[in-house]
Design a binder for these strands. Structure first.
Lengths: 232, 232
DNA sequence: ATTGCTATTATGTCGCTACATAATAAGTCA
DNA sequence: TGACTTATTATGTAGCGACATAATAGCAAT
């Protein structure tokens, strides 16, 4: 009899329901953890865990002494999983192919330096490559690699190994920044991806850092129709 | 003396560093929580919290009895915060404007029904609107609203209130699906957004549900140059 | 050999206590 | 009155113990 147990998730769901049902409105103050624990007949640590989860999901705000409040400005928070391109293709049942297009040391444009947080202009290694699914262009990547922080890359034969896979295995990062946007395909991109010039491309741009030191910046131009899906 | 304390975050960082530095390779098994707790001189619950965080960030996998392993296929996980358009504009210091373009009951295309999980074809309420920043088109939204699950919407004057804001305040959702992609502007979109036909638009498509019952599907066509930024 | 029960192992969850920390309010002394 | 100290309040973090649960291994009966 009685209910089986009070898990922190059930507490979270209950509080969330209260908020979503409007029993607590944006800006309202929620009961203290201790009180809630008593009414729900559980320990405060259980409530605390539930509340922390709601903070992470962006529904509430908590301040010491100030208490817990429903966020005034709700935000929708979603999680994106970005897989390695090879796996993304293989796991969808298609055959993966990789092709190095060019590899050279070059002076990056200011925008690239800015995104990597580099102040003094310096040449970087640029590697362009194509990921193929069943032999057809799937993602074109334009990559800038910091030779200063990753000198080992110069000894790797990127003709066969994707820089991405090498870096993932050999150069861990502690932080990264993602930028998502749309761009028209220019002449050379269109040619390499076998699409029409002017087609709308979804671009995933990722800059990785290790301890604030830049490692690499990669722009992935995806085939028209590509979608990134996220769920709550 | 001795070190001050062992926080679960310090444990997490330590384990993460071990993995990133290659002391544990993909697929390797990590020590049991209990052992780790002993060597680090802390409680198992502290280790457990640290490990759970690493699971959430996609670095490791845990299975009861099976133990903790470094994920073989690393995934990059990022969190996106999607704010209400009005706030996004206001917080960037620009003036927000809203304009209803059209409002009518219509038969949605199959793709819309599919994304909302509706099997039997039925008319939905369609509301198109424009969000303006400093008087210029910023986001064009094309929205389908389930009148069956949200009949109250028909009594709201959407000429002045954005359907988005009304729904957020009055119709909570428990789950949503996000789709991000790029699309060429067609003639009418281009006209409404005051851009050129064929321009590459970044599209944010969101379907919200309450308890698996569909509420609304909205496609937000963003002004060229729009970027979505996520950080770890 | 196959099925079924039991033991083992490692993680998952929860309660309780204790102390830390941040924010604020109240009080105190010059 | 103003600056400093102290108390209060509510959340944050950690420890420890206990039991739950899932996955596996081992053993036993047929």
């Amino acid at each position: 009899m009685a209910e089986r147990k009070t898990t922190w998730k059930s507490v979270r769901d209950r509080v969330r329901d209260d908020i979503l049902a409007g029993r607590f409105k944006p800006g309202d103050r929620l009961p203290r953890d201790a009180d809630l624990a008593e009414t729900l007949n559980c320990a405060r640590s259980t409530v605390q865990r539930a509340m922390q989860d709601l903070v992470d999901s962006g529904l509430i705000e908590r301040r010491r002494k100030g208490g817990t409040h429903v966020r005034r400005e709700p935000i929708a928070r979603a999680t994106l999983d970005i897989r390695v391109t090879r796996l993304e293709i293989e796991q969808s049942g298609r055959e993966y192919g990789y092709q190095l297009i060019s590899l050279e040391e070059a002076a990056p444009p200011a925008s690239v330096l800015a995104k990597l947080g580099i102040t003094a202009p310096r040449p970087l290694l640029r590697a362009d490559a194509l990921h193929l699914a069943d032999g057809r262009p799937y993602i074109l990547e334009e990559r800038w690699i910091c030779t200063q922080t990753t000198p080992e890359i110069s000894q790797v034969d990127l003709t066969w190994i994707s820089a991405n896979e090498w870096l993932i295995k050999n150069k861990p990062y502690s932080r990264y920044e993602l930028r998502l946007y749309a761009q028209k395909a220019n002449a050379s991109t269109a040619r390499q991806m076998e699409i029409k010039r002017g087609d709308a491309l979804f671009v995933i741009e990722r800059a990785t850092f290790e301890d604030e030191r830049p490692i690499t910046l990669v722009k992935s131009f995806t085939q028209p129709g590509y979608q990134l899906v996220a769920t709550t």
